[in-house]
Write a protein that binds this DNA or RNA. Structure first.
Lengths: 297, 297
DNA sequence: TATCTGATATACAAAAACGAATGAGCGAAA
DNA sequence: TTTCGCTCATTCGTTTTTGTATATCAGATA
C-alpha cells in the first residue's frame, strides 16, 4: 500500500459507484465517462490495498470492505454538500441554500405555507425540504435546520422549544354515520382504529399517557403518520392526528376531546455554526415564528 | 457562479492554505507546487463566486467567507482521515490505525502501559493517541475511541462504564515537612492549594460534593490536570489527583483520606460503526480491561 | 543601500488524466 | 436463435493539469 493519500475525488467516485451499482451509471451521474470512473476505483483500490468491487458484466458487486467504507463516504458527501451550502450562502444578504429536515406530517401539512412566505420575502433563498421521520440529521450535517419532536441532547445545537401541538382522536363524518359516534373511550373497542405498524418510542410514550389506547388493537396500520392521516380523511376509521390539521377539513370530527388530548412537543433545532449565516438565521426565525403561531391556534 | 461542483481536492487545498497561511507553505505540506495550489484556490473562488483570500507578498489573508468555511473543511478532513483509517484496517486481522482520544492525565499517566502490551500483542496495529481535554471528538470522527469522564448522551455511541477512579488530596513529603500536615478539612485554609484556573463543569461538580473546597482559593492555578499533578510532585502545595497515581511516588502523601474522596466516573466510548472492525474492537476491549484493572487497585 | 529570504504571479514544457471509440461478455426479450 | 441493451476492459489521441523556471514584490538584516 502506497503512502500517498488518495484524491478526495476518489471517495466521491467510490460513493457514486456504490449508489449506482455500476461504473457506467456512476459515470452518467458524475458527468464523467466509464473509463475514468473505472480508473478512479482502480487507483483507490491500489492505494488502500484492498479490492473494493468484484467486476461483472452486470455491474460491480461491492466487497465487504466497500460496505464498511460506505457510511464514511456518505458522511464525507454530506459534509461536502454542507460546505457548498455554506459557500453559496456567503455574504450579508439572505441567499443560498438552506436544507430543512422535518417529519412527514409537519413537512407536508404544516411547513409549506411558511416556506412560501419566507421565499416570497427572500427570493434568493433556495429551500431544500427533507421529509423524513429519521432523526440522524443535524450532527451529520445532512440538514441545516430541523423540526423535531424530541428535545435534542446535544449541546452543540441551538434549540428553540415551540410547545405542544395538540393531537386528538378524529374520524370522517361518513365513517361516523355508518358506525356511530363513540361516547366514551371504552367504546373505541368496537371501532376500526388506525394505528402504528411497529412499536416506536413515540407509541410507547402515548400508551403510557393513555393506557386505554393500549388495549385496542388497530385494524389499519401504518408507520407513516401521513398515511394514517390519509386513512382518517378517507373514512377508514378512527385515528390520532393533529387537531389543527383536522379542523381544516369540515368533514373530520374530533372525538372524545375531553378524554383524549396529547400534546406533541416540538422543537426547532439548528447547528451552532449556522447561527451567524443570514440564510439560516432568517429561516430559523421564520420557522419558530410560524410554528408558534400554528400552535397558538 | 458555475453549476459544477468543485473537486473535493480543492477543499483539501483550501484547508491547507488556511492552516499554513501561504500558497508556498501549503504546497510544501501537500507535496504539490505553489502554482498548483494557487490554481486550486483560483478555481474554487471562481466556482463559489467569492474571494477567499487577499493575496499579498507576505502570504494570503483569509476573508470572512474563508473563515466561515474553515470549520466545514476541517470536518471534511477529519472524515477523510477516518475513512482512510477504516480502509487501512480492513480485513479480519488486527491491523491499521486506531485513534484514541483521552484526557491529559489518563492519556499520559495511565494508558501508555496498556497501549504497550496491546501493541506487543498486535504488531500491525498503529495507535494514535490524541491527548486533549476537549470532548468534541467521536461524533466529528476526530477519534475512533475515547476515554471520557462524562457519560455521553448520544445513542450512536457504544459506551462501557468503567467505574469511579478515586481522587484524593495529596502533597509532597517535602512540602508537608515545611508547612505541616493538615488534620481536618478546615486546616486547608492555611495551605498553598493547587486548583483550576477557570470554572469548568467538573470543578462545579466537585464544589457541590465537597462545599468546603469552595471556600479555599487556590494560590496555584492551572487548567491542565497534568500541570497540577506536576506541581504536587514538585512540592508546590496541596492538590487533588488520582489516588493510584500518587501511590506510585513514595514521596507523595495522601491527606484527609476519610474526609475527602471523589470518584471520577470513567467511560470508554466508541462509535457504533466501529463495532465490527477488528482493530477497534480489540483496542476497545483492551482499554476496558486495562482501566477496570486500574480502578480495582 | 545592498542583500537575502520569504512571498505571489506568469510562461512554457512535461506529465497525467480524460474522453471517444471499440471490443467483448452476459442476460432478457422478440 | 437473434437482437438489443446493459455491462466492463482496452486503446489511442486530446485535453487538462501539473511542475519547472523565472520575474516581481515586500520586508528584515548587514
Amino acid at each position: 500500500m502506497s503512502e500517498i493519500e488518495p484524491s478526495w475525488d476518489f471517495y466521491r467516485t467510490f460513493l457514486t459507484v456504490m449508489k449506482e451499482g455500476s461504473l457506467s451509471a456512476a459515470a452518467r451521474d458524475l458527468g464523467l465517462t466509464q473509463p475514468t470512473v473505472g480508473r478512479h476505483i482502480d487507483a483507490l483500490e491500489g492505494i488502500i490495498g484492498f479490492q473494493l468491487f468484484i467486476r461483472s458484466p452486470q455491474g460491480l458487486i461491492p466487497t465487504e470492505a466497500a460496505l464498511d467504507l460506505k457510511p464514511h463516504a456518505e458522511q464525507l458527501a454530506a459534509n461536502a454538500a454542507a460546505l457548498l451550502r455554506a459557500a453559496t450562502g456567503q455574504g450579508k444578504t439572505v441567499r443560498g441554500t438552506v436544507r430543512i429536515s422535518a417529519s412527514e406530517v409537519i413537512g407536508i401539512e404544516v411547513l409549506p405555507p411558511m416556506l412560501a412566505t419566507l421565499n416570497e420575502r427572500h427570493p434568493d433563498l433556495v429551500i431544500e425540504l427533507s421529509v423524513s421521520d429519521q432523526v440522524e440529521d443535524l450532527l451529520r450535517q445532512q440538514a441545516d435546520i430541523a423540526v423535531r419532536m424530541v428535545a435534542p441532547a446535544q449541546d452543540a445545537l441551538i434549540t428553540r422549544r415551540i410547545g405542544g401541538i395538540p393531537l386528538g382522536l378524529h374520524a370522517h363524518r361518513r365513517y361516523l354515520d355508518l358506525h356511530g359516534v363513540p361516547e366514551k373511550l371504552d367504546d373505541l373497542r368496537d371501532h376500526r382504529m388506525i394505528g402504528f405498524d411497529r412499536e416506536s418510542a413515540f407509541v410507547r410514550a402515548m400508551r403510557k399517557r393513555v393506557p386505554l389506547l393500549g388495549i385496542m388493537r388497530p385494524t389499519l396500520k401504518s408507520d407513516s403518520n401521513l398515511a394514517q392521516m390519509a386513512m382518517i380523511r378517507a373514512g377508514c376509521g378512527i385515528g390520532v392526528c393533529q387537531v389543527e390539521l383536522a379542523r381544516r377539513d369540515p368533514n373530520l370530527v374530533r372525538l372524545l376531546a375531553t378524554e383524549f388530548e396529547l400534546p406533541l412537543e416540538t422543537f426547532v433545532v439548528m447547528h451552532e455554526t449556522m447561527k451567524t449565516t443570514p440564510r439560516c438565521r432568517v429561516t430559523f426565525d421564520a420557522l419558530v415564528e410560524g410554528l408558534l403561531a400554528y400552535v397558538r391556534k
